[in-house]
Amino acid sequence: MSSFCLSKLDHPDLAWLAADRAVAADDDPTRTAAATIAVAQALRALGHHHLALTAALAAADPADDDTVRGTLHLQAGLAAAEHGDRRNAHDLLDHAAALADRHTGDTDPHHTGFGAAAVQTARSLAAHRLGDTAEAILRHEHVIRSDGWRRLPPEHRAAHLVDATRAYLDTGRPSRAGRALLDADRTAPAEVRSRPVGRTLLTEIIRGGPAAADVARLATVVGLTR
């Protein structure tokens, strides 16, 4: 879990090192695959998209847990999207969706949060990375109304809301961006108050013009304004 925290705090190099050591320390294919999720995430944060895709798919094959395999396919699909590989991104996310459809139980021993809602949040982020921002927002607005949304871990929901904030800003909708960021703060405050990206987005919203009272209050709380 420490590698995930390091990635969120903009230390992907340390995150990669921590995750890589976790992978090396285990000889069980499924546990190794679960640890590789963090490796892929850190490699994506470092901009090594092809390496992230390769590592995720190599670890997914021997894993015998659909939640782990599905999450690795999500990481691979996002890496492809960040590399601009539209076809591969869609294919990998489709494969993850098929695994989510097959996984109907409540078991998630490796705490991946994998399921239909996780696939939809990944599709939204992939669309944004590929330049399809309007599609990203449509997918975001669909997933937050879905039955699976509340079953995602709070940190996952908040991280997705932070991503949606960027999409709203990119389409010139600062008020919607502010609402998304406030929802993220209510869901898991550390995703906004501790992550550099959360503070950056809040700064952009404040500088973009008169902000809603709740947004201005949050900016004061985190020390961006007085």
Rank of each mutant, 00 (worst) to 15 (best):
182 L>V: 07
168 Y>Q: 05
179 R>I: 09
162 V>D: 08
186 R>P: 01
158 A>W: 01
163 D>M: 00
193 R>W: 03
175 S>K: 13
163 D>R: 12
164 A>L: 06
179 R>Q: 14
177 A>Q: 05
176 R>T: 00
197 V>L: 13
188 A>L: 02
167 A>Y: 08
197 V>Y: 02
195 R>Y: 12
172 G>C: 06
193 R>S: 15
201 L>F: 11
194 S>A: 15
170 D>H: 12
156 H>G: 00
179 R>D: 09
158 A>M: 08
192 V>D: 06
157 R>W: 02
168 Y>P: 00
162 V>I: 15
155 E>I: 10
176 R>K: 14
175 S>W: 04
188 A>E: 05
194 S>Q: 14
165 T>W: 03
183 D>C: 04
165 T>V: 04
176 R>W: 03
195 R>S: 05
178 G>N: 04
187 T>P: 00
183 D>M: 12
166 R>W: 07
200 T>Q: 14
189 P>Y: 13
194 S>Y: 11
160 H>W: 10
178 G>V: 03
166 R>F: 09
168 Y>G: 00
185 D>I: 08
175 S>G: 01
203 T>S: 15
157 R>K: 06
166 R>E: 13
178 G>K: 01
181 L>P: 01
198 G>M: 09
180 A>Q: 07
181 L>S: 09
184 A>E: 04
178 G>H: 04
183 D>W: 13
162 V>T: 13
160 H>R: 06
169 L>V: 05
202 L>G: 00
191 E>Q: 11
181 L>Q: 05
192 V>Y: 06
159 A>P: 00
187 T>W: 06
155 E>K: 10
197 V>A: 14
159 A>T: 11
198 G>W: 04
182 L>T: 02
168 Y>I: 01
156 H>V: 06
166 R>V: 08
181 L>K: 12
160 H>L: 07
193 R>K: 10
191 E>K: 01
189 P>W: 12
166 R>S: 11
172 G>A: 11
198 G>N: 07
167 A>T: 11
196 P>T: 13
193 R>I: 01
161 L>A: 14
201 L>Q: 11
190 A>G: 12
189 P>D: 08
190 A>N: 07
184 A>N: 05
163 D>H: 13
199 R>M: 03
